[in-house]
Each structure stands twice: as C-alpha cells, then as structure tokens.
Design a protein around this nucleic acid. Structure first.
Lengths: 477, 477
DNA sequence: GGGGAATCCCC
DNA sequence: GGGGATTCCCC
C-alpha cells in the first residue's frame, strides 16, 4: 500500500491517493485488481521492474478522477485530464475564428493560416459565442448536408520523422513531437479543432497503426511532473476555452518486441471496454481479442505510427459519447530506423565523371538498407523538369555496412556532348519512395576526343578548364 | 525436483540424477542449496530464464561425479571430466616423445614441430614409460635445477582473435576456438603438455583476465551433448594416455554487463573454496572477496581474455594437489569489438595522390573507433626497411559512422621527385598498436612542373602515362 | 539530438 | 561466419 499523487490540472494541485495494485506491463497504468490485463504480464528484468515503477505510480484509483465515466475497469480512469495546465495547452480560444467561413481547401493550409497569424496570441479573448465555429466542410461540393455536424479537423499535422525512444532512453530530454510546420520559433505542435459544436467536450489523442484503424503498441507519452503519462491524452474544450486542442510535449516510446503483444492487447481491450461501457469482456470476446491481437502484432509496422483524434461529450450520468468520427494524422516515421529514417548523402568521393559512365563513385550516406536503396542520377532543365535520369550500378555487397555505397556511374544519355553537363544525384528508398534531400550536384565531362574536335572546329578552347581528363581519354567507344 | 542426466565421458554413458536446486545466474552450474552464490542472483528476463534452464540442467549433485574431492560446495563437482570422449580429445598419447630432449627455444615452435609431424597419428602407442617426458625447461641456461620439476607447456596457443558470443547467440554453430596455427586442414586447438611427471594427472583449462591472475567473468564453454558446459575444463592425462591435453570445441560466452560482478564473484569464490579445500568461506573472507571482485569487475577488459592451464594430481583421499605452476596463453581478443577487432581497409577512393599531399582520400574500413585510429602512409626500400612515414590528416568527425574515414593525404617527403613513388597505407589502432593487414598500395605523383622540366632536360617522356594530372598542377608551392 | 556500444537475431 | 536489427547508454 503506497501513497501516490498526481497533479490534477483541472484544479491545479496535487492529489494524494492510495495504491496497492501491482503493475503488470512496462507501460500499464491499469490498477483494477480484477483487470484482465493481468494475465498477459511477462516477467521483467530488474531494470524493467525499476522503470515500470515510474508508470505504476501514475495509477489513479477509480472515483478519484473527476469527469470520468463510472467504470471500475476503465482504462482511462487513471488518466490526467489536461485543460489549461502547464505542460499541455489544454484549450486555446480560437481567436482566429471571426465567424466567417474560411472555405479553405484542406486542413493543412487552414492550419498554416491559423498558425501564421494567430498562433501566439497569449490569452483567451472573449469572442461573441454566436460568431464562433461556423466552419465549412473542407470546401467540398457535397458538404451541404453535413455542414452542421460536429467534426474534428487537424490544423497542424505532426512532423513526418521523429526518433522513437525506448523506455530506457526516457531519462533525459530528447525533444518532443512537434508540428509539421514547427520552426525554432515559432514551434508548433499537433493540433486539432472541433467544429460545429458548442458544448463542453473532450478531445482525445492516441497512437494508432498506419495500416489499420487499431491502436499501436507503442506509447504516446507526455512528460508531466517527472512522469511519462501514456496515451490516450484528453483535453477539455468548451465555448469558454475554445475548441482547439494542441498536444504539447509528447514523445513516442518504442515498445520492445517482447512486449508488443501485451501492450497491443491491453490497448485494444481498453478501447473495447470503453466503447461498450461495461466492466468486463466475455470469454468469447477476450478470445477473439487475443486472436485479433496476435494477427495484428505479427505484422505491425514498428517504425511508423499515426495520431488518432477523437471527440466526446460527457453525459450527465458520466458516460462518454463520441461527437464526431475519429480523424487520423499523417504517418510519423521512426527517424532511427534504416527503413524509415532520413536519407542523406553525406559526401561523394568525386564531383565529376565521364559521359561514358562506369566510373567508380563512393557515396558516404546515412544509414541505409542494402536491399532497399537506389542511387539516381538525373538532369533538370531550366524549368526544373526532369529531362534525363538513370541509376548507378551496384550490388548489395557494394553497400558497405549501411553507411557507404560503392557504385558505377551510369552513362550519360548523350555520349557526344561537347560541354560539361550538370546533373544531380539522390538516394531513393523503393519501399516508401523516399528521396534524399537535397540532391547533390555531379558533373558529366565530355570525352576528350569530342572536346578536341570541337576545339579544332570552333577554334575555341573548352569552356571548362578541367575537360578532357585522363579518365575521359580512356572512354573511347 | 527434476530428473536430469549428464554424459559421463569416463564411463561413456549417461548418468541420471535428481536436481531440485534453482540456478541463480545465467551461467551458474552450482547446485548446492547453501551456496553463498545465491545472494547475488539478479532477477532475469523471461528470455534469460529460459536460457539459463539449459545451464541448470547441467548441474550435477555432489557425490555423483567420480574422482572429485569431497566438497559439498565444490564448484567443480558439477563438471564433466573429459578423457577420450567424443567432443574433446582427452588424452592423446605423445608419440613424438622419444625420450630425447628437444631443447627447443620456445613452446610455439615445439608446438609446430609436434603438429607438423605427429598431429594426426591415430592411435595411442605404447611408449616405454621410462623414456617419456624428459623435457628441458625451454632451453634456458638456468634450467638445470628445475629440469625434473613437473611443468606445463603450451604447445599450441589459441587464435589471437575470436568472436565472443552472447548467451543468446549460442544456438547454432559458430566455429570454435582454434589454435593459432590452425588451417582449414589441419585444424589445431589450444594444447598443453605436462612435462616431468609420470603419474595420472588432470589438466585444467579456464578463462582468465589478461591484466590479473584472476578468472574472467566470461565463460569458456564446450558444447557437449547439446549443452554448453562452462569452464573449468579438465582432461585426464597419464602415462597410458599421454601427457598432452588438447582443448577442442571451445567457445567464449560474453557475459552481459549486468552479470559481470555475479559471475566473477562466483568464479573467484569457487577457486578459493577449491584451493582451500573447504566447504565454506568465513564471513571475513566473503567480504574481502566481494570487495576484490568489485574492484576487478570495474575495469575488467571485456574484450580480452586468456586461457589458464593448471595441472593437478588426485590424492588417494580425493584431494586435488597442484603439480605445476599455472601457465597462461596469449591474449584472445574479441573479434566483434571496435577496440580489439581486426583492422582492415576495404577500399580506397583512389589509388594515387600528389606529392604535395592534402588530397582528399576516402577509406572504407571495417569497424573502427574514431577516437582510436590513425592512417599511416609509409615507404619501404627494397629490403623492406621503412624509409619514410607520415600520417593522414583527419578529425574525429571525419570518421563516418565507424566505417569510413575521409582524410587528407600527407605530403610526400620529397616534393621534387620526378617519378611516381609507391608507398603503402595502413590503419593503426594506438591503444594496442594493432595494424591493418595487408597494407594497401598508394602512388604519389610528381608535380607536373617537375615532370615537364625533366622532360625538357632529358628529352624523355614521363615513364608514367598518368603523371602531371590536373590536381598536380595546382600544388604549386 | 545524436552516435555508438551492448545485446540479440538471423541469413 | 558474419551483417545487421534491436535495445540501451551516454556525450
């Protein structure tokens, strides 16, 4: 029996509570003694045991948390409701909403407009309620009949790439999940707005798989009071507070393989219990859940997640009722993985090669997978149109420990050019068609026989001092 | 209470025994219920628990093993005595010993002689006892007085580099610890001979630290009957069997960091108990042992070990009495570590550079540590004498993820040479002065101004078609 | 924020 | 036998 506390952001003070439940998984925050999660608990290494204590301390017993549905086994009873607190900007009034419809083409550009102009307005202003939140549905032609249906819109997507951290890495600070348009200043964060609704509501953010409408085993955490609180994260919105929910200071914890099934099962079960608003699942339901979890866990993409946003109203009896269909963010890719990380050419062994190609070229690159990488040469005209492309030649064994590629340059399309040709080199990862950026410049040099012929004809010297190199001499057709 | 069995190589059959002791560490083979080791046991992850079961099954209860001293807590009561078994060549009769002293200068050459001529002799021959084992002491001048003292000699050193494997890697087969002179055929193995003794004896091999005469926390294992048996390993030798002990099929298990202290403590304690031939250690002794272990564990080199060979005779009362001072093998280095692994240049971005130096050169290399690596250029004369050396210039940040080095070539000593100069490039690891092998050839090219001067003077064309390159032209002093 | 060491997995 | 993925640690 331990005394624990949590910081109640609604009331702005610490709340003490008793806790005698043992945590079962590294991330579990369920404390119900009859939790069905218990049966999945694996043994833990000493280090893991230590760490999970951190999470266990976050547990809140049912009944202590305000505004929660009365479910003893609710997965969310232990979760902090954040509204206007220090760590998370719970509800920023949408000053930008002047009552006129923006009629913007898509969420992203709306997000940009919003941020560009109004993002740092400090305090909630008092906007006439009647003017607020008359949003159109994305300017689609068919939106007439759903014009006044409550709807969630993403106004700021999360960044596309982010390093997922293991639990063991969650000591220090490592930077949080910013918005796609975040800069040093202003920083942005994933952000949604609830449209066409004017009562109090809760906006929830949780981590989902990208291939299924199902939770992801990884954890979306928020650092709060020296603790990492797991998803889902709820923010209160209302007429007074505004209907924008900005999710600040989140991180993504990479669930270790041995816990994937367990964590996924727990999350799926929690959602099911919540949706059905009942205490326990039937044996049959549990069995199906297990089977489904097994299938999903087997080929879940561990290096890609997305955010799921949901909106609920809380009935007088405490029940949470969905207000709008969930919306999903763009994919967030694990920056650390060779399968999803940033592609980058750090250096070329030389900036030029002959038009005949087959020059050996070494590229120093950031981590790549030898089975999933190509080296593309391409030429653009003045308008940026691609007028030529070709791929360098190399085998898997020419990829040196993921960090260097030894390749042969492809021949240029025209072996008889009489001047240097400026082209570019980029990496391509076929699996997701990712490119390195920026493309690096490379110059094709004409054959020396062509250069001297031109010289004889025109009487001019080559316009490049370095034309007609040794190697060019050897590329006689 | 489980039934277990081990294969008794002395009797050539499986022996059943009861086992109700739980194993404490990943490698522990001690089963005594009052073992003091118990207090160090850490919790284990599920995976670890599984694996240690493998080891636990090897436990032999005291009293079941023949030829062992009567110590309930003996660390070696659970160890297989190997003589003439399938996996380990327990005792090869030393046919080569004709009774005359070889008087060889060192153990290694003796080892070579032995192997070259006699290694594959199939069956033990019956050599007149009186003629056997009259070895000299390494041919030292001062060896007269110890000529007939029993002595261990290493006749085949272990290989210098070997990949240490984690316990989790011990499924498949990964090649065993061969002798320094091992080839595809003939393979050799670490091997010692006991000289100046003609009774039955046991030769023991165990893993030691290189900086101290103390055991290493890593495990020297022998695969036997689908199990990895930990060190020490004992082989029986005698007049009939010969006095050569060849340790076949050994591997080195890299103890995970969290078990270093525990494993080291156990090994040290086992040795102490064995040496003192008593059941338990006093409280004071245990305390000292702990402190000493703590000190040793703190800065033990985890990437370097050596073999310790010892010889014992077994008294009629079962006591083991040392016959000769222990001898230690050369260091065995972990091939997988950047600190001790093989240095190798896989490729150069170009084979030539100008005499003025400062040409950018990329080396693709096997794993190096950026804080512990140098690139040495050197020139040898016809006799192989080094006539010039210099180091390439680069910063730590020029080492690309341990696998490539971007450096500037050093200037050649003579900026006015009028012909190409052939030199070599090698990597050097300062910490252990290790070199890459073989050194790669590199050619310095004369400045073009020198070449044309020579041409004018001598009327001859440069003897290299590629002298006077573009870049050479730019190295004007 | 990132590089690399330690550990584990698999071709 | 070896490369690389996974997990962890630390500058």
């Amino acid at each position: 029996m331990n005394m624990n506390q949590y910081y109640d952001l609604d009331n702005g003070k610490n709340v003490m509570f008793m806790n005698d439940a043992s945590s079962t998984s590294g991330y579990s925050s369920s404390t119900s003694p009859n939790s069905t999660n218990r049966s999945f608990s694996p043994a833990h290494s000493p280090k893991t045991m230590e760490l999970q204590t951190d999470f266990a301390n976050l547990n809140l017993p049912g009944g202590n948390s305000p505004h929660q549905p009365p479910m003893a086994n609710s997965p969310y009873q232990n979760q902090l409701l954040n509204n206007g607190g220090i760590c998370q900007l719970g509800a920023t009034n949408l000053i930008n909403s002047t009552g006129v419809s923006f009629g913007v083409a898509n969420v992203t550009s709306f997000g940009n407009m919003y941020m560009d102009h109004q993002y740092f307005v400090p305090a909630p202003a008092t906007v006439p309620p009647s003017q607020n939140f008359g949003y159109h549905q994305n300017g689609l032609a068919s939106d007439g009949d759903i014009k006044h249906v409550p709807q969630l819109r993403i106004v700021e997507q999360p960044v596309e790439k982010f390093r997922f951290r293991y639990k063991s890495e969650m000591h220090g600070t490592h930077g949080s999940l910013n918005g796609a348009n975040s800069k040093r200043t202003p920083k942005t964060f994933p952000e949604v707005t609830l449209c066409n609704y004017d009562g109090p509501a809760v906006i929830r953010c949780s981590l989902f798989q990208t291939n299924l409408d199902s939770p992801h085993s990884h954890q979306l955490v928020v650092r709060k009071d020296d603790r990492d609180v797991c998803d889902p994260h709820d923010l209160h919105v209302s007429k007074e507070r505004g209907y924008v929910a900005q999710f600040i200071n989140m991180g993504i914890i990479h669930t270790a393989k041995k816990y994937i099934f367990e964590e996924l099962c727990k999350k799926k079960q929690d959602r099911l219990v919540f949706q059905m608003n009942r205490r326990e699942l039937s044996h049959k339901q549990l069995q199906e859940l297990h089977q489904e979890t097994e299938r999903e866990a087997k080929d879940m993409n561990l290096n890609q997640v997305r955010l799921c946003f949901e909106a609920f109203k809380i009935e007088d009896n405490g029940a949470w009722v969905p207000l709008a269909p969930p919306v999903y963010s763009n994919a967030i890719n694990n920056r650390k993985s060779a399968q999803t990380g940033e592609l980058r050419i750090v250096r070329l062994s030389k900036p030029t090669g002959g038009v005949m190609g087959n020059d050996e070229l070494i590229l120093l690159v950031e981590k790549v997978s030898k089975k999933n990488i190509k080296v593309r040469f391409f030429e653009e005209d003045e308008d940026g149109e691609t007028v030529w492309e070709a791929y360098a030649k190399f085998r898997e064994s020419d990829v040196h420990h993921q960090y260097a590629i030894v390749c042969q340059t492809p021949p240029y399309k025209d072996k008889d050019v009489d001047r240097e040709v400026n082209v570019y080199i980029e990496l391509i990862r076929p699996s997701d068609d990712e490119r390195s950026f920026p493309a690096l410049p490379f110059r094709y040099k004409p054959r020396s026989v062509i250069v001297s012929r031109k010289r004889r004809r025109t009487g001019s010297s080559a316009n490049s001092s370095s034309s007609g190199t040794e190697s060019s001499n050897t590329w006689m057709p």
